[in-house]
Design a protein around this nucleic acid. Structure first.
Lengths: 340, 340
DNA sequence: TTGTATGCGTTATCAT
DNA sequence: ATGATAACGCATACAA
């Protein structure tokens, strides 16, 4: 089972030199004869020598490994962010250890622990929906361990983080609906303890206010699970009544899709009677009928920016609080555009 | 920046005992006084001691880390497999290092190298579309390093692997179309050098033959990229002509969706005039119009089975070639069912 | 130009 | 019941 990988010692023995000489030759240190260097390198090549990253890590107290914690892997947005992280790590010579919490606080805490044991150099985190106590992160930050938070901000002061402009994204979405002539916009809101939900809700409110439209609290429906069914259930009920909204702005695409399903089932036409806008630009959003207007989040960029910020912290040894805000982009499609 | 994690030495010094005593106490070795054991454990708790996984790894030549190589992370099927791998690894106390090749051979080779340097205990691989030379895997297997292949089988004899029954999945799909009364089935085939494409093509052929229908080679259209546009382009052309197929079986859902788009654009009704079936049961497949019939692959299960097999190899030290075949399931939806 | 010794954190072996 | 030592693979301060 063991690979029997060649080590520096093996090379040293074979060439009758000391391990240090080999080490130096391999790293092109000054003060090594051309001859020895060549001998060493040739043999290393021949034996397919590869430095043992574990030994290096122990020696240098540096693992060139980053930990990534996400709520879920099977998720268009998060997988896109992961992809960005992968790329960023790769080009900078870092490995990525990945964990998903499945939105469970318990798991999150354990995973942080495991990763710390693994001597990761830094952590990239989007916390679970359940997490209300952030001390497992706070403890590390207090000891000057670098963590970059993305998408979901913890309730901790002065962190380094990357988010998208959820407020403006939501604002743009609702403003767009209003501009299209819709007047009574329902909001399918995300989990309450996520900042992103708050921000999107605020953007929704502001857009209505700026347009001189009333903000009705009963037009704000919490959809904490973010499943299609959840939203479908709520919308079926709401749009069966007489006091019906004429548009839906959902905090995520799944909820928006649920709304469309419910509306279709009720025979209410989208976008003629009711306009719908989602959030995230999931893959399916362009493919459903009608194609769905949504707010695109730059997931890949978020991942690579997060890595950049983290590496900056790691390499400088400094943790300078910043919150980088990436712009969203409204993608107008059929679900919100009345034929004139 | 450094965490200043407490080590066994720290505990030893603080208690005026030797590191070995601490080590033994922590691991509940016999031959340690109750008193010492308690003292050690209490202090360890207080200092929040965590064993240094890197040191352990070096000492034991075992990292409890698995490498995972996939073509892409932003991919419904692969992210589902990754999720299964994550879970399997977690419950067995292993970490997961993740890499995506972006379907590039060069990257794949490098990543294998990096992972080996990182002293992973085993590898889980779905190779890139470009890979034709498998020697980077073969070399490792020859040295008895455990690799489990999933979904995409390499051209190597006697490997341990997990696949889905692509042949039967395709057969079922096409048989279903025939049963629905379609007679002239177009096949949008996957990349030629992937076994899965071969298998799906074979299933397609066999289903036609078994039904006594002719297999027309010009009804087999290669769609190597697997994008919506690619298939859309081909289908637009094909269905504009006079000699038109009356059904489409695509090797993946994206291609099937492209076909539906093309048909819609041409004003050809699905499923009345042309039936469409995809492969993979991507998230969007149930949400598009019409909801798409497709073949579901058990991605999560594939991931957890692959981990189980790998751990078996690692722990037994034996590499017993097997190919585990997971069943697919046809999910009939509107896109292939003519109203009678 | 090269070799020797030491230490990163841990544990197994051999003392005591 | 506990301690001393060596070793995992590597890099480096110090010697020669």
């Amino acid at each position: 089972m063991n690979l029997g990988q060649a080590t520096i010692k093996d090379i040293a023995k074979a060439l009758n030199v000391s391990p240090s000489t080999v080490s130096r030759a391999l790293k092109d240190y000054p003060g090594i004869s051309e001859e020895t260097r060549k001998k060493v390198k040739d043999l290393a090549e021949e034996l397919n020598y590869r430095p043992n990253a574990v030994a290096l890590s122990l020696r240098q107290s540096k693992s060139f490994t980053l930990g990534v914690i996400v709520p879920e892997v099977v998720h268009f947005f998060f997988s896109t962010v992961i992809s960005g992280i992968e790329e960023g790590a790769l080009v900078n010579g870092y490995n990525v250890i990945l964990c998903q919490t499945n939105e469970q606080y318990e798991r999150e805490v354990k995973m942080v622990d495991t990763m710390i044991s693994s001597q990761i150099d830094g952590l990239l985190v989007s916390h679970s929906r359940e997490t209300k106590d952030f001390s497992h992160f706070k403890r590390l930050l207090d000891r000057n361990f670098p963590i970059v938070f993305f998408d979901r901000l913890p309730e901790i002061e002065n962190t380094v983080s990357v988010i998208v402009d959820d407020f403006m994204g939501a604002y743009d979405a609702v403003a767009h609906l209003i501009l299209q002539g819709y007047r009574d916009v329902l909001h399918l809101a995300g989990p309450k303890n996520l900042k992103i939900s708050e921000q999107r809700l605020s953007g929704y409110r502001k857009a209505l206010q700026d347009a001189g439209l009333p903000v009705r609290e009963d037009r704000i429906i919490p959809c904490p699970n973010g499943t299609l069914e959840e939203s479908q259930t709520h919308c079926s009920l709401l749009f069966s009544g007489t006091d019906r909204p004429d548009a839906v702005f959902a905090s995520n695409d799944m909820a928006a899709a649920g709304a469309i399903e419910a509306l279709k089932a009720l025979g209410i036409s989208v976008p003629e009677t009711v306009g719908v806008v989602g959030f995230s630009n999931w893959q399916f959003s362009s493919m459903i009928a009608p194609p769905m207007t949504t707010v695109a989040q730059p997931g890949f960029e978020m991942g690579s920016r997060a890595v950049s910020l983290l590496l900056q912290c790691i390499e400088s040894g400094k943790y300078n609080p910043t919150t980088e805000v990436l712009p969203t982009a409204l993608i107008p499609r059929a679900s919100s555009q009345r034929k004139k």
